[in-house]
Nucleic acid binder design. Sequence first.
DNA 1: ATAAATTAATACTTACAGGTATTATATTGT
DNA 2: ACAATATAATACCTGTAAGTATTAATTTAT
Lengths: 131, 131
Amino acid sequence: MFISKTSEYALRILTYMALNNETQFSAQSLYEELEIPKRYLMRLLTDLSKSGFINATRGRSGGYVFARPIETIYFSEIINSVEDLQSFEGCVLGNSVCPVDKPCALHHIWEKPKQAFLETIKTTTLADLLL
Amino acid sequence: MFISKTSEYALRILTYMALNNETQFSAQSLYEELEIPKRYLMRLLTDLSKSGFINATRGRSGGYVFARPIETIYFSEIINSVEDLQSFEGCVLGNSVCPVDKPCALHHIWEKPKQAFLETIKTTTLADLLL
DNA sequence: ATAAATTAATACTTACAGGTATTATATTGT
DNA sequence: ACAATATAATACCTGTAAGTATTAATTTAT
Ligand code: SF4
Ligand code: SF4
């Protein structure tokens, strides 16, 4: 598991586009490169457009370009736009409120890798791919 | 996301039992402590029993006890018994085979937190909770 | 023996993520 | 103007994880 399939798709799309930012991509061209079911890909693209990552232009020579500089687009934001990042924050055991007084041993055990994950996605932008 | 709800349940059950290993727990008593839908909990318990973590005894004063010393039960094994741990190993972008020649930048970015996560669950046992 | 208390097996239902289909809308080359 | 080529909106379908229901099997106290 880790992240949802839709998150994977969103990352795949935007990281691919980031390699040639400035360039305009059509849904068709993205479909040919990335292995994502076409209609689902198209729906996702309008979602990403609504989320403000990319701008869509319709019509004969339309397509998608980044709406913002890729230096400002964090992985956490991408993931959060298609699934709830909050679900990564909570208790490993899925307790919405911690049932014990002081943190159980499992809490500490999980804390390190969880923080490593969250830190990474919160501090890394699409631009970092090009380094 | 991170891990499935069923994994959360399995961990919640076994970590709770580990606090008083040797003790026998009935499904009823576990239901009263842990917040897991009763019937689902009961089915999970027989699954965990089949997986060899716990032994079930039926009948009037039946219940569940650990089938093995908790020093030998790794979190990875618990999770793997209810969902496929393999799905944590692969490419972040969900590519079954990596489409590029040499690791893309995202690969390195993800590698650290992923390894931290996998390392932890592979090296930690239920007994470590009691430390 | 019988009844009560437990787990086991099996099948069914529900909710939701993922995927598909259809129709509408916008842009542009001719 | 019109046809061609894009994206947008909306509704529907599907597969799977999660949850529920029913009945069977096992053990033990009385
Ligand atoms: S202390 Fe344990 S039970 Fe409480 S929130 Fe942390 S992991 Fe969950
Ligand atoms: S290099 Fe990039 S595309 Fe290839 S497996 Fe790693 S993350 Fe996936």
